[in-house]
Design a protein around this nucleic acid. Structure first.
Lengths: 231, 231
DNA sequence: CGATGCTTTGAATCTCGTCAAGATGTGTGG
DNA sequence: CCACACATCTTGACGAGATTCAAAGCATCG
């Protein structure tokens, strides 16, 4: 509590974030006043599982992941976070997941109480918060579908499309993977070897290419989307 | 819109529902006034996938399930609903799932707009709605963990414990299963045969018993819980 | 130019899915 | 109350897909 991070320039609260969507300039200023900018390196924890959920974050730049680690060391990644995504709006006392940056990242930190107070004054903001929550749930349901019904190579197509849609600057010709094969496996409920082999299978079928291990191309968007479809 | 179901006696809005938790009697009356009681048989649809989400339901009695059916007929059950559970609070225009009763059920129907309006007057109700949303998400994350990391017999333990916790009147000695093996399989991402075999395995290990196919006993709660643990 | 860590590939094993048959339950009508 | 029919559930044999264990191939970085 002693050291607060730097305040946020209102300009950073870009309107491409759901949270700040359709807010007037004056309202963005108000929000910027209670926000703090956190700039962190790769592989840093923002939240620790079982800690108190008194802060919330809006991702400005970079990639992060939401993970749950069990007592036996098993790890499941519950979701990835990209610019515009929002995390931390739980309603229980302790968090059931950790949040960790994959790349260096800029985040907008709020004290949960302060943000919710502000939402009381700004109906648009309150609406945006609800929208964010709905998006999180919708993604979770998609993931349940994929984990319950899809095979390995289909799960990978699902991830490819999600990256294409959510990573800023991503095009079918070039997607830079911020996560390792292990992260992908822990997200899709697969082992690292199965991830590799399934990628190889998709490459051989001409759906995708990997110019380098951390680079992805979607060569046949239609077929990839068909395999990925979560409904 | 022409035919509205019967109004709800305020007494039905039991305080064991999260939604109505800690509400004053007078406030419960107000809510009862905008609620409608729906009594439906087994295997009835409350929501259809892709329909408008203008209503929300609170389960009073009976069991229901939230399911998603893909174009190819694949079905994934996204969750079961028991008394006290709440469904329908999406924030998008169309629902990405259906809701279907498993048993005859009583439900409390609200027009979403009306309920949210009422929540504006009753801070406690608004808080309860948030709490309900948080519970839904927490369960979804548990399910992601289970589908991503657990093996067949562990997934079944997870379901057993969930039924024990959420089914009214359930005890380790007697749990009445409202769903078929097919439903269980579609919930846990398994085939009906694997469900049967995994139950047999747990029976042989002495963790559970099934006096009849629709009846379940948990003989060793500790071991069952250990296998089920989603964190 | 090695050294390290990540990724890919290979072979054996195992779990789960598929197909098929048989058993058990439930409900109906005699 | 019994017998039959239908649906659901269980069990078996086999095969496909994923995991495990092991080794080899590639990047990246000092």
């Amino acid at each position: 509590m002693s050291k607060r991070p730097a305040p946020v320039p209102a300009a950073l609260l870009g309107s491409d974030c759901v949270l700040f969507h359709a807010l007037a300039a004056a309202d963005l200023e108000r929000l910027a006043a209670i926000a703090r900018l956190r700039e962190i390196g790769a592989q840093q924890y923002l939240f620790l599982q079982h800690s108190a959920g008194d802060r919330v974050y809006n991702v400005i730049s970079g990639t992060a992941m939401v993970e749950r680690t069990a007592g036996d060391g098993q790890r499941q990644i519950l979701g990835f976070l990209f610019p515009g995504d929002f995390v931390g709006l739980t309603h229980s006392d302790h968090l059931e997941y950790s949040v960790k940056s994959l790349t260096p990242a800029q985040l907008c930190e709020f004290q949960r109480r302060e943000l919710l107070q502000e939402a009381e004054r700004l109906p648009v903001l309150k609406n945006n918060i609800k929208q964010v929550g709905a998006n999180v749930l919708a993604r979770a349901l998609d993931q349940i579908y994929v984990l319950g019904k899809k095979r390995a190579h289909e799960r990978l197509c699902f991830l490819c499309l999600q990256l294409l849609e959510r990573m800023p600057g991503a095009t079918p010709q070039r997607i830079d993977l911020p996560m390792t094969r292990q992260d992908i496996g822990d997200y899709l409920g697969l082992t690292i070897e199965t991830v590799s082999r399934s990628l190889a299978k998709l490459k051989k079928a001409g759906l995708i290419a990997t110019p380098s291990p951390q680079r992805l191309q979607i060569l046949d968007l239609e077929k990839t989307a068909a395999l990925a479809s979560a409904q």
